[in-house]
Every structure is written in structure tokens, then in C-alpha cells.
Amino acid sequence: MFKEENPAKDIKTADTVIGASVKVEGDFNSDHDIIIEGSVSGNVKTKNNLKIGKNSKVKAEISAKNAFIAGTVTGNVVVQDKLHVTSDAEIKGNITASLIMVELGAKLNGQCRITPTPEALNNNSLPKKE
């Protein structure tokens, strides 16, 4: 079983929130958690967690520690630890992460690459082999 412990999924509030009625263009860098519910084009980079909401549209190269994606993303997604792609998500680009969970119905158009970190290998959150 895949043990669900993606911190990005449970973000309720964050220092940085891009709401549904806002458009952001350019290179967006942060050291903190980011929630995106609106539209972003350019690059999105955070050293922490990233949550992309259901109706958001992101055309950007994405880099984050953990990510939870429920919206539309056009661009490559590089996640250091855990990536959760929901059934509503649509990703046009390559995804890279240590642990990836993709829900039934998610649309992925790109390459998928798993890069386990030493921390990920040491904990028990990896799927067990039958």
C-alpha cells in the first residue's frame, strides 16, 4: 500500500497564496509553502510544499520539496520528495519525484522519473513488493 503522507496535500494556509482571481507572470521563488488557485505562467520554485488547486492553470517549470497537483500544469515538474497527482489533474510535461502517487483519471502527458533520496529509502512509505 502507498502510505499517504504528502505534506503538500494538507496545506490549509500558507504565507504565499495565489487566489483564483489573480494572474501571476514571471519567475516566482519562495522559501515557504505556496498555494496556487489561480493562473501562473513562468517558473515556480519553492524550498517547501506546493499545492496546485483544482481549477488553477499553471504554465511553468515547477520545482518544490513536496507537491500536490489537482489543476492543469503545462511544464516540467521536479519534486524533491513526494508528488501527489489527483484525478482532476492534467500535466503536460515530465515529472520527477522520489515518490509519486497518481489517482485514477489523472491525465499525464510526459515522462515519469523516480529518483529516490536516501531518506525515502530509509522510511517505510515506499510501496511494498508482493
Binding site: T16, V17, I18, G19, A20, S21, V22, G38, G53
Partner: peptide
């Protein structure tokens, strides 16, 4: 903070906060 004034019920989703 950017907030849509006519969306009261979904205030969390319509509010932008950028430090």
C-alpha cells in the same frame, strides 16, 4: 492581498496573499 469582492462564500480560494 488581492481579493474578489463578490465572492464571499469561497473567500479562501479567491484571496491572494503575497509577502
Amino acid at each position: 492581498v488581492i481579493q474578489n469582492t463578490d465572492v464571499l462564500l469561497t473567500k479562501n480560494k479567491s484571496t491572494t496573499i503575497l509577502p
